[in-house]
Every structure is written in structure tokens, then in C-alpha cells.
Amino acid sequence: MIPSATLFGLAGAALVGIGLYGFLAHAHLLRRLLSFNVLGSGVFLMFGAAAWRSPWIGADAVPHALIITGIVVKLAGSALAIALLVQLARATRRAALPEDEGRPP
């Protein structure tokens, strides 16, 4: 029997890798942002899993609170990025930064 904490901690590590890859590889900024959200929740999952390492005492509330804060901050970042992206799309009809699709910046 594998402790849930370990299992979800490893899952979080995997999600970080998947999210990071998408974040770095995509030229499309919305996909990049979506991947960033996957990356973020992977970080939180790792963090939260660590808080469940001693189930017999109960979960550690501090990481939970921090994760809630983190989720809100992550949303704030995404919201600003999306608003900027929409402006960029309207102004240039592209959803990528010029240098990432081989145009001069």
C-alpha cells in the first residue's frame, strides 16, 4: 500500500513536468497559459500531498491555506495575461509573440 501523500506528490511532480513542457513549447499564448495553469496545479498538488504525510494527526492546515491563496494569485495572473492577449490579438491578429513565430520583434 502506497501512502496517498506519496502517490499524489509524485503525480504533482509529473503534472509539473507536463505543464512546464506545454508552457515552454507552445507558441500560442493561450495554450501556453493553459499549460501554465496545469503547471500551477501540479505545484499545489505536490504541496498539498506533503501536508497529508501524517494522516493519523490530520491534514496540515497551513499548506491548504497557502494553496487557496496561491490559486487566487494564479487566477489573477491568468486574468491579466488573458486580457493582454485579447488586446494583442485584436491589434495584430496573432495569438503569439512575434519572435516565437519567426517574425522580427
Binding site: 499564448l29 499545489f44 505536490m46 499548506p63 497557502l66 495572473g77 493582454l84 509573440l97
Partner: peptide, 24 residues
């Protein structure tokens, strides 16, 4: 601003990951 944003997001998520590991 968007270019700055992308770099800043990477920077902050790396920092957060480190802080989370430190607490864990």
C-alpha cells in the same frame, strides 16, 4: 507586457515550487 508576463510567470512558479518544497 505579454513578453514580460511570460517570463514573470515562469519566475514566480519556480520560486513558489521552491518555497513549497522548503515547507514540505
Amino acid at each position: 507586457a505579454l513578453r514580460y508576463m511570460v517570463f514573470a510567470l515562469l519566475g514566480s512558479v519556480l520560486f513558489l515550487l521552491g518555497a513549497a518544497l522548503a515547507y514540505a
